[in-house]
Computed example of a mutant assay.
Amino acid sequence: MAAAKKATGRKNSNKNSKKNAPDETTGTRLELTLAAEKVLAINGLNGGTLRQIREEAGQKNESAIHYYFGSREAIIQSVLSLRSKPIDADRRAMLERARAEAGGAPLSTEQLVRCGLLPLARYVLDNESPGFYLRFLVQLHVERAAWLHFNSDYGVGTAQCLEAFFESKPYLPTALIEQRFLSMLFMHINGMAAMERIRSEKGEDFRRAEAWIRVEDIIAGSVAMYDAPLSPMTLKAIHEADELYGDLPAYTRIAVKR
């Protein structure tokens, strides 16, 4: 499961950028980071060029990106550090409050879905400028290797939500909990990326109250998906696969025993 994977071999990969410019919130480094967010969101992680990023930032110095970042990986990491850290902190705080209110009981599906989606929704709908971050995340998730590479640093709250789903759904096969979680994650990111784009296009005509209707409907749809029982055809497919392979405990530990 992507949200639970650990990145490896990256401790020194960003050494040059940390040494030269540790502050990602001001000056030229911030301008380049925001330009990278836009260029990579539009063109993809591998499609956007360093030259496009430099030109989008209005930077004439051809060595600026190398000076501030040193690598494409460091550019991606800078975007994630700027945007994902506060979003993930919001998610972890929501999850902590929900756990405290539950008093040790498993959290409901709706509570967990809200912990997953609302930090993204607040970022897109409440910020002064929508930016391109959710569209950047869509591109990051398309590049699965890149997503797994960075996820352990910037997806702690997401991983905690997944663990909470395991606690709250002991009657579902673990592989299907993970699959539904991935489907929910993609639904949330793509849904909020669409709202981000619409807000950017409509400007002052964008209606936040209407957007929150859509957010609540995404929550309702996510809850329905996660709470759906295993269908007879799903159970049949699990039994057939178990008879064929005999090594599918992530599916059969729950489903076949029934």
Rank of each mutant, 00 (worst) to 15 (best):
M1I: 08
A7E: 08
G9Q: 12
G9A: 12
K11H: 06
S13E: 15
N14F: 09
K15P: 01
K18Y: 15
A21H: 05
P22A: 11
T25R: 14
T26G: 10
L30E: 04
E31L: 08
L32N: 00
E37C: 06
E37A: 04
L40C: 01
A41T: 01
N43A: 11
G47W: 04
Q52H: 06
Q52R: 13
A57D: 00
A57P: 03
Q59V: 15
Q59D: 09
K60H: 09
I65W: 00
I65G: 00
I65T: 11
F69A: 01
G70E: 02
G70V: 03
S71L: 05
I75L: 10
I76E: 03
S78W: 01
P86R: 06
A93D: 13
L95R: 05
G103Y: 06
A105F: 10
L112V: 04
V113G: 03
V113E: 02
V113A: 07
C115Q: 00
V124L: 07
L125C: 08
L125K: 08
L125V: 03
N127Y: 14
N127L: 09
S129N: 13
F132H: 06
Y133V: 01
L134W: 02
V142M: 07
A146R: 03
G155M: 03
E163W: 01
F166C: 07
E167Q: 12
E167V: 13
Y171N: 15
L172M: 15
P173H: 06
A175K: 14
E178Y: 07
R180E: 08
L182V: 10
L182W: 12
S183I: 15
F186V: 12
H188M: 14
I189P: 00
A194M: 10
E201W: 08
G203F: 11
G203T: 04
F206R: 02
R207G: 04
R207N: 14
R208K: 10
A211R: 10
W212H: 09
W212I: 12
R214K: 05
R214C: 14
E216G: 10
E216H: 13
D217W: 11
I218M: 13
A220P: 01
A220S: 15
S222P: 03
A224M: 13
M225I: 07
M225K: 04
Y226G: 03
A228Y: 09
P232H: 07
M233T: 14
I238E: 02
E240F: 09
E240H: 06
A241E: 04
E243G: 11
D247Q: 14
D247P: 00
I254Q: 05
K257I: 09
